[in-house]
Design a protein around this nucleic acid. Structure first.
Lengths: 271, 271
DNA sequence: AGAAGGACCAGTGGTCCGTA
DNA sequence: AGAAGGACCAGTGGTCCGTA
């Protein structure tokens, strides 16, 4: 009965409501898909050089049970999800790149399961919203700390903030262009790439989508009912900004040359 | 040149853009204006019994100037808004209830000035938004701490968060029903009421407006372009919730009597 | 090595209460 | 007394880095 909540439980077979897919057929695509400048270099450029002095983590919750034992080094534990005291829940199995519909084998979780977690968070948010409205309290529109707390309280210990935030943009691609998302998964599975590589690769198609929508990644997220409840990840926002600047610079170069002549693009066009 | 920023500067004469007034002609008014149960009692009922252990404030900024003086008890100071060191800015003059268009006399500020501060905050927000969009950073939709910080940095020292939050609902009434707001001001001025009483009196008409919009005070705020940038005050939200419950209870009593017969209103109507 | 997530931190929303 | 606002506090968004 280990891992009943994740890969061994055949949840993918459940009759989940299909993900609504919005058709973004926007005609005003400018400079999308070409160049792609810093898709390798940009990653390190963006990285904040934020040096933190981090204290050694202190063990705070060593609650002694009735017998006075302190929950000794119990390596061969066989009950994992039990609610008994002193039982730490095991970590979730790591994700691997799977094709759509494919169930991960061994101690792994697949990407359909990953995306399923986002749907679960949405349901928890809807419940939190219902409760808040009923009580006349302010009502969250996004998946906030409060929602993660509610999910944990509801028994969904496998949901946590760092994980969900980490893969938000992957889920975004799945929502916004399921075909492209599926194709990317198949490609990266075929190549034997790890999850980190696949995750990195999800950025580019999203930036292209943002490009087709005037570089407004917030508007792209907000226009999609299942995506609008997620905060736009900082890195995705930064990549969109960098690419927009790139595009603007390229357009300026086309018009006025790269030399500094004191004439802007709008000046050349008499605007 | 004292108080150039507030009442002595005849800013009300400036060509401010007129406040856009939305016409909320909603037909579905149910039980608005009647009863009004806890308009006295409710104020104390709501009050959180939040006992805080508050430490004695410690003086932290006693910066000694070049002469080594510690800024002694300088009662007869004549430069107030000067940017010189050791000069603390004087508090703003207190508000008094004024009629629309009336300029406060003496060391007082009028209510047109109060509402003007809200317009100024909106302009600061618009500037913060422009900067954020340009930098590709996340863009605030409300008047946040960041906006207050920006206002202060821009020299608007007379704007601060506690003050603006304190009178938000008064500004809300001014936005949503300027006629009613003006009438209330005239009445309270005539009666010689102080600002606190006027402020309290602003709640009821707002709750009535919320009633006419299905008790959704958030929707009421969000529907108005100048009001949507302000957080709904906690107390106003609570009052709306209480009145809604009141209205529901009254409706149930009309249908099923107050006795507990195990039949709901919807049951009686065969829904 | 690649990855999951506890726990930290800077800055937020909210408003109390020492101050004038 | 009535009122303005510095400064505090609980809980947030964000993600690092000790852990497995």
């Amino acid at each position: 009965a280990l891992d009943a909540l994740s890969q061994e439980d055949d949840w993918t077979g459940l009759s989940e409501e299909p993900v609504q897919h919005q058709d973004h057929t926007d005609a005003a695509g400018i400079n999308c898909g070409g160049r792609g400048g810093h898709w390798e270099a940009g990653q390190t450029t963006i990285k904040k050089q934020q040096q933190r002095r981090r204290k050694k983590a202190i063990v705070t919750s060593v609650e002694t049970d009735d017998d006075g034992n302190e929950g000794e080094d119990d390596d061969g534990m066989d009950i994992v999800n039990g609610s008994g005291s002193g039982m730490e829940r095991q970590r979730e199995h790591p994700f691997i790149v799977t094709e759509p519909g494919e169930v991960a084998r061994g101690k792994k979780n697949g990407l359909d399961y990953l995306f399923h977690l986002y749907e679960q968070c949405r349901e928890f948010l809807l419940q939190v919203q219902t409760i808040a409205k009923d009580r006349g309290e302010k009502c969250p529109t996004k998946v906030t700390n409060q929602v993660f707390r509610y999910a944990k309280k509801s028994g969904a210990n496998y949901i946590n903030k760092p994980k969900m935030r980490h893969y938000v943009h992957c889920y975004a691609l799945h929502c916004l262009d399921e075909e492209a998302s599926n194709a990317l998964r198949r490609t990266f599975k075929e190549r034997g790439e790890n999850v980190g590589s696949w995750r990195q690769a999800c950025y580019k198609p999203l930036v292209d989508i943002a490009c087709r929508h005037g570089w407004d990644i917030d508007a792209v997220f907000n226009a999609h009912p299942r995506l609008s409840i997620w905060y736009v990840p900082t890195k995705l926002r930064q990549l969109c900004h960098l690419e927009r600047n790139n595009a603007v610079a390229a357009a300026a170069a086309l018009v006025g040359g790269i030399s500094c002549e004191g004439s802007s693009a709008s000046g050349r066009f008499g605007v």
